[in-house]
Every structure is written in C-alpha cells, then in structure tokens.
C-alpha cells in the first residue's frame, strides 16, 4: 500500500497539477486561442518563437496576469493545506486549521492597522500584505511565549493561548474598524478578508513560492515526528522525541507559510481544514504520505477554485475565500455526517 502511494499516487498528482495549470491558463474572461497561450509561455520560458510574443495584450493576459495567479495558487494551496496538517498535529485536534492559533486575528489586526491607520507605509505598495504577515508572525511568537508561562507549553496550553490572544487582537481590530469612518477603506478590508489571488505578480511569487516549497519539504522530512505528535507527549518521549521544542519549531515554520499566504492572497478559509480531512479519510494519518498528498491536492484545489472565481460571474471576480468556503463547508458537513469518519470524537 505504502509503496503504491509513493510510486503511483504522487506521480499522478504531479501530473494532474501540471495539466491543471496548462488547462487553467487557457480559461478566463478574455477568449484567447490555446495555441496563442502556449506560444507565449514557450517563448517566455524557453525563448522559443518570435520576439513579437513578448509584447501585446495576449502576452500580458497570459504571462502577467493568468500564469502568476496560477503559480501563486499552487504556492498558497500548498501552504494552507500543509499547515492545516501540521496544526492538527501540533494541537492534537482534527478540527484545527492553519489559522487556529490566532494567525487569522493577528493578520487581520495587521491589515486593519495598515488600511485604517496607515501603518507600515514604509513597506510601499503591499503595506497591507506586509503588515498582515507581521501580524501573523508576531501573534505566533506571542502564543508560544504565553503558552510557556507557568510551565512548558502543551497542546492544550497552546490552544488556550491562541484563543486568548485571538480575542485580544479581534477586540482591537473591531475597535479601530468601529471608530473609522472611511467606508471605502472598510470595503477594501472586507474584500481582503475574503481572499484573492488577483494581486499575484512574478516578483511576489519569487519570494512566496520557493519558501513554501522549502517549508513543504521540511515538513515532509518530519513525518515521523508528526506521527508521534498524534500519540501525545508521553508516548512520543518513550519513542525518542521530546515534542516540546518540535511544537515550537513547527508552529513558527507554519506561521511563516501562512503569513506568506496571507501576505500574498489575504484570508482563504477551509482549504487548510478540508484538504487534510479528505486526504486522511482516503489515505490515513501517516504523515509520510499525508504531507505530500495534501501539498499537491491543496495546490490542485486552489488552481481550480481560482479558475471558477474568474469565470463564475460574467465580467466580475468572486473572492476566492467565499468560493472555498462555499465548496468547503458542505464537504465538511458531508464528512461529519458520514458515520465511518467521526473526527475521532
């Protein structure tokens, strides 16, 4: 079974992801013939074809809008689904998602500060993204610090610290939003919480995607420890791993990934919850297969979610967070209703 997963399932998923990107790049509100799309990509990647391909509307739509979005979708989908897997192990709870330890409230506070109080202007164009990233990372550090007060951090203390700090951040964010009377900017804020890959650019991808890949490979290499985390502290130590330092390390690496996805795409819900669940149902909880399969499935899922967002409403774009929640929530209910899969409760 194990061997089959590594030799069949993973290559198939890589293939599906590749084909998904190639297919998705031809779909959009502007009709462009297949051949023109691929000509532009071949020219940009390998310098094949005439130099005329490097300019013009077709080039800009394909190379500067669609493809960067798809590449970002791959990175963000991977980041969210892997950090969902990791968070579920860290807090030993199958209902955890990437945002559970305060990351959502922290990044929201960052975005609020940037948009409504103008903080972080020195970061230039994407001040909201940068501030959201900083918010996500600071709250993760704070959760680690708070959960170590009065004895070493445990899974439960991390959850409590996350909940408490989350509430603090939300309170401050809400206060600022309540006092602000700039409906324009509040609208931007609302859109930000729904997520979008629309801001994707090659220079953003060049930072986000490689870091996500490295983090993904790091977590894949940690499959044994991630498995032991599910057994709890006592069993893990008798099998040779002190989970205390690993939890903190994983939490911070995961915060880096989620922070980058928030920075580049805002808040996208349910991906980090649904993908790990669905994959666990089919392939089990062994992280040596769970991590890579989730990474690829999360990417594929987000690529197609983004395509749907672009075409589902004619002439407009649906925020991707709405779509993932619309798809994700019913799947979640379906999973709950299936008796075989009880979430272990």
């Amino acid at each position: 079974m194990k061997k089959r997963i590594n030799t069949i399932v993973l290559p198939v998923l890589v293939l599906v992801l590749g084909l998904s990107i190639l297919l998705a790049v031809t779909i959009g509100s502007v009709q462009i013939p297949f051949t023109d799309v691929y000509k532009v990509i071949l020219y940009e990647l390998f310098g094949i074809g005439s130099a005329e391909l490097a300019t013009g509307a077709v080039h800009d739509v394909v190379w500067l809008i669609r493809l960067p979005r798809l590449v970002l979708a791959v990175g963000v989908g991977m980041a969210l689904s892997i950090s969902g897997v990791v968070m579920q192990s860290i807090v030993r709870n199958p209902l955890a998602d990437p945002y559970i330890l305060g990351v959502s409230s922290g990044s929201y506070l960052g975005a609020v500060l940037a948009l409504l109080l103008g903080l972080g202007k020195m970061f230039g164009g994407n001040a909201v993204g940068v501030m959201a990233f900083i918010g996500a990372f600071i709250i993760s550090l704070a959760v680690v610090a708070l959960s170590n007060v009065g004895g070493k951090a445990s899974a439960v203390k991390l959850l409590l610290a996350g909940t408490a700090l989350s509430a603090v951040c939300s309170a401050f964010s809400n206060f600022i939003v309540y006092r602000a009377n700039d409906s324009n900017r509040i609208q931007i804020l609302v859109n930000w919480t729904m997520g979008s890959l629309g801001a994707a650019k090659w220079n953003i991808n060049a930072v986000v995607v490689p870091i996500v890949f490295v983090c993904a490979i790091f977590f894949w290499s940690q499959f044994r420890t991630l498995n032991l985390m599910l057994l709890g502290d006592e069993a893990a130590i008798s099998l040779g791993v002190d989970l205390y330092t690993r939890r903190i390390l994983y939490l911070l690496v995961s915060a880096l990934m989620v922070g980058l996805s928030v920075y580049s795409a805002g808040m996208i819900g349910f991906v980090g919850l649904i993908i790990p669940h669905a994959i666990r149902m089919i392939f089990g909880s062994d992280h040596r297969t769970l991590v890579p399969i989730c990474a690829l499935t999360g990417s594929i899922f987000l690529v197609w979610a983004d395509v749907l967002c672009r075409v589902i409403i004619r002439g407009a774009e649906l925020p991707i967070g709405i779509l993932t929640s619309m798809i994700g929530a019913p799947i979640f209910v379906y999973l709950m209703a299936r008796r075989k899969y009880s979430f272990g409760v």
Partner: peptide
Amino acid sequence: HNLAGFDF
C-alpha cells in the same frame, strides 16, 4: 495512551 481523534 489514547490517540485523541486520529487513526493509524
């Protein structure tokens, strides 16, 4: 030890 909601 208990497995807290996951399965192997």
